[in-house]
Computed example of a mutant assay.
Amino acid sequence: MSFARVRALLVVGVLAVIAVVFVAVTLVRDTQAGKQAASDCNEGDKLADTRLRLPKDIKINVYNGTDSVGLANTVKTDFQNRQFQVLKAGDEPNRKGIDDAVAVLRYGPRGVGSYHVLKAYFLNEAEPEFQLDREDDVVDVVIGGEFKQLATITEVHQALAQGSGGPQLPPQTCVDPDLT
């Protein structure tokens, strides 16, 4: 192969890489998707925050739904070691139906994205409990009788990848256009 041909292939290759990067950046910064979702709101729908947050930006309360003494504080420490903001820890007063669950995650419209991240720490086996009237972005983590341990970082990434393509909007909610 001649030098001119190698140089031409190199130039075409570099241009192709630049084009792929340009297209990827354009797709990531596309703002039309958020505006379209906002127009899908029905009257009475609550605005939901579907952004996937980093653990350091997720606020949680940890409650022990089992008879194991001190479990909430142990799980609280595990979440703090993973950089979560743990606001409260203690025993869950209403333990009905939690013995046969890994965990129950209670959240409102402002905690949809946080819930999606948190359920990966339970390998997508935590039961959701959506509360439409909840105004804050805090997720309550109620540890159930089937809980063994939090997932490793690798398992969390795999669980997020296996998740249903991102946070799913609960009924009577729509994407907040100011948060897209």
Results as ranks from 00 to 15, higher is better:
residue 41 C to E: 08
residue 159 A to W: 13
residue 134 R to T: 03
residue 8 A to R: 14
residue 111 G to E: 01
residue 53 R to W: 06
residue 51 R to W: 00
residue 56 K to G: 04
residue 5 R to N: 13
residue 153 I to P: 04
residue 161 A to N: 13
residue 124 N to Q: 15
residue 11 V to C: 05
residue 109 P to W: 00
residue 176 D to E: 09
residue 150 L to T: 07
residue 39 S to V: 00
residue 85 Q to G: 04
residue 7 R to V: 04
residue 125 E to K: 15
residue 54 L to W: 10
residue 104 V to Y: 08
residue 165 G to E: 12
residue 104 V to S: 14
residue 28 V to Y: 06
residue 63 Y to A: 06
residue 5 R to S: 14
residue 77 T to W: 02
residue 66 T to P: 04
residue 180 T to A: 06
residue 102 V to A: 09
residue 170 P to R: 07
residue 90 G to D: 12
residue 79 F to K: 07
residue 34 G to K: 03
residue 134 R to K: 15
residue 97 G to A: 02
residue 101 A to Q: 15
residue 164 S to W: 05
residue 58 I to Q: 01
residue 157 H to M: 10
residue 77 T to H: 11
residue 94 N to Q: 15
residue 104 V to T: 06
residue 47 L to H: 05
residue 25 V to G: 12
residue 9 L to H: 05
residue 87 L to V: 05
residue 6 V to C: 03
residue 55 P to T: 10
residue 109 P to F: 00
residue 67 D to H: 10
residue 135 E to K: 14
residue 50 T to F: 00
residue 51 R to P: 11
residue 12 V to K: 06
residue 95 R to I: 11
residue 134 R to C: 02
residue 167 P to N: 10
residue 158 Q to M: 09
residue 140 D to F: 01
residue 154 T to K: 07
residue 105 L to T: 01
residue 168 Q to N: 08
residue 60 I to D: 03
residue 106 R to G: 04
residue 12 V to Y: 02
residue 117 V to Y: 10
residue 40 D to G: 07
residue 93 P to V: 10
residue 83 Q to Y: 08
residue 102 V to E: 14
residue 67 D to C: 03
residue 174 C to Q: 08
residue 57 D to C: 02
residue 56 K to R: 14
residue 143 I to C: 09
residue 28 V to M: 02
residue 78 D to G: 07
residue 1 M to V: 01
residue 125 E to M: 13
residue 168 Q to E: 12
residue 134 R to F: 00
residue 146 E to A: 15
residue 138 V to M: 05
residue 124 N to V: 08
residue 133 D to Q: 04
residue 27 L to W: 05
residue 30 D to V: 01
residue 118 L to F: 03
residue 109 P to V: 00
residue 29 R to K: 13
residue 110 R to C: 06
residue 133 D to C: 00
residue 137 D to P: 04
residue 144 G to N: 13
residue 75 V to C: 03
residue 108 G to H: 06
residue 147 F to K: 08
residue 18 I to S: 11
residue 13 G to Q: 10
residue 67 D to L: 12
residue 78 D to C: 05
residue 36 Q to I: 10
residue 91 D to G: 14
residue 62 V to D: 09
residue 19 A to K: 03
residue 162 Q to C: 05
residue 15 L to I: 08
residue 113 G to M: 03
residue 103 A to S: 14
residue 146 E to S: 14
residue 26 T to M: 09
residue 130 F to H: 12
residue 54 L to C: 01
residue 29 R to L: 09
residue 136 D to N: 15
residue 168 Q to I: 00
residue 40 D to I: 00
residue 146 E to K: 15
residue 38 A to C: 11
residue 50 T to Y: 00
residue 41 C to P: 01
residue 137 D to H: 03
residue 32 Q to S: 15
residue 3 F to R: 14
residue 7 R to W: 06
residue 53 R to Y: 04
residue 156 V to D: 10
residue 176 D to W: 01
residue 148 K to T: 15
residue 86 V to K: 12
residue 126 A to E: 08
residue 91 D to A: 13
residue 37 A to E: 13
residue 69 V to C: 02
residue 123 L to C: 08
residue 153 I to W: 02
residue 28 V to F: 03
residue 21 V to F: 04
residue 65 G to F: 04
residue 128 P to H: 10
